[in-house]
Computed example of a mutant assay.
Amino acid sequence: MSPAHDERDRIRAAMDRIFKGTPQHSNGALTIVALAQEAGVPRNALTQRHLDLKNDFYAEVKTRGQIPDSEVRLRKQIVKLKELRQEDAKELSQLRTDVEHLVRAVNQLTSENRQLRNALAQPDPRVRALPTQPHPSRTP
Rank of each mutant, 00 (worst) to 15 (best):
I18W: 07
G40T: 03
L84I: 12
Q133R: 15
H5F: 09
P23C: 01
R126D: 09
A59K: 15
G21N: 02
H5L: 14
A39V: 04
E87N: 07
R128K: 15
T139M: 12
L35T: 03
D52W: 09
V106R: 09
L102W: 08
K82L: 05
L46P: 06
K62P: 04
T97R: 15
K90V: 10
E7W: 02
Q48D: 13
R114M: 14
V33I: 12
R73K: 12
L116M: 08
P42V: 09
L74H: 07
P23A: 02
A119G: 05
E112W: 07
D6C: 07
T97S: 15
T63A: 11
A45Y: 05
Q122K: 14
S93I: 00
D16Y: 12
N107G: 02
T97G: 09
L46E: 04
V72S: 10
A14C: 05
A13I: 06
A59P: 00
L46F: 08
L130S: 05
R73I: 09
F19G: 01
F57L: 05
E71D: 14
L30D: 03
P140A: 10
N44P: 02
V103A: 05
A121T: 10
G28M: 04
D69L: 11
R114C: 08
I11N: 03
V106I: 15
A36D: 02
E83Q: 09
T97C: 04
Q115R: 08
